[in-house]
């Protein structure tokens, strides 16, 4: 029963034209990055940080792409899906039907959350796969060189990419869960997207001020840069755990608030 609902939810999300266009836009990112690094050529000063080791190291492209996209692009995508999930249905009048149906409202929320997770995982994996292909095609590859100067075998490199996909997806789902809570309170999907993106941007701005450093541990965006540790060898787990636990707290708060709102909502 619930698996059928999960399936129909994902099919419903995938069938929308805007999803297809969005996914197409997402896969352009790794291609543009690979092309850009390739045209910059050997010996040029690459972008700082992870970008500096991209030359001749195509397997890092998926990680670089996701790391960059995590700041704005992926939260935007998560917020769109969360907005469509509840606010979008409310706008079309279809949510009313779901709320009066003899299906538990908590189950409805979990179906929406599952849709969000599945689509986030799909989008992130798609970007990573295109990143591997584009990176290898444009920049070549010889295993995967880490930030620590060690070279991993292709298999180990793929494992790192898989780990990063999971970590990034989890961050996306956590942001999406908070967006779902907003989505449960309104009939206007745009409000959800605007609220989510404003929050993410404001968080990043707040993160720039060292005078507000007491606030930083509460901001989900504080955890983003630490995920780069996946590219160090051996992997330091401290920051990765911290980021993931931080996102987990947001997931709990978002899901809880969304559930509270849905349960008390007049149908």
């Amino acid at each position: 029963m619930i698996t059928r609902q999960f399936g129909s939810e994902v099919r419903w999300m995938l069938r929308r034209p805007r999803t297809i266009i969005g996914l197409f836009g997402l896969v352009l990112v790794p291609i543009i990055i690979s092309f850009g690094i390739w045209t910059a050529g050997e010996g040029s000063d690459g972008p700082p940080g992870l970008g500096a080791i991209l030359q001749g190291n195509g397997m890092v492209v998926p990680i670089f792409t996701l790391f960059l996209s995590l700041n704005l692009l992926l939260p935007l995508v998560a917020s769109i899906w969360a907005a469509d999930g509840l606010a979008g249905e409310a706008q079309h009048g279809t949510l009313r039907g779901l709320l009066v149906a003899p299906v538990s409202r908590v189950r409805l929320l979990f179906v929406k959350l599952f849709g969000l997770t599945a689509m986030s995982l799909f989008a992130v994996t798609l970007m990573a796969v295109v990143g591997i292909i584009a990176g290898t095609a444009f920049l070549g590859t010889n295993g995967m060189m880490t930030l620590s100067g060690t070279t991993l075998t292709t298999g180990e490199g793929l494992l790192r990419i898989a780990l990063f996909i999971i970590l990034v997806t989890f961050q996306m789902v956590s942001i999406g869960a908070v967006a779902l809570a907003v989505s449960a309170t309104t009939e206007h999907p745009l409000v959800v997207q605007a609220a989510t993106m404003t929050t993410i941007i404001v968080f990043q701005v707040l993160g720039q001020f060292s005078s507000l450093d007491w606030l930083h541990p509460f901001l989900i965006t504080t955890g983003f840069p630490g995920l780069i540790d996946v590219m160090r060898d051996p992997i330091p787990t401290g920051q990765i755990w911290d980021s993931t636990l931080l996102a987990g707290c947001y997931l709990l708060i978002g899901t809880g608030l969304a559930a509270m709102r849905l349960i008390t909502k007049d149908s």
Partner: peptide
Amino acid sequence: AAAGVVTGAAGLSLLA
């Protein structure tokens, strides 16, 4: 659901 929210908020403060 409320317990979930509280746990999340408590977790945040604990992490901080």
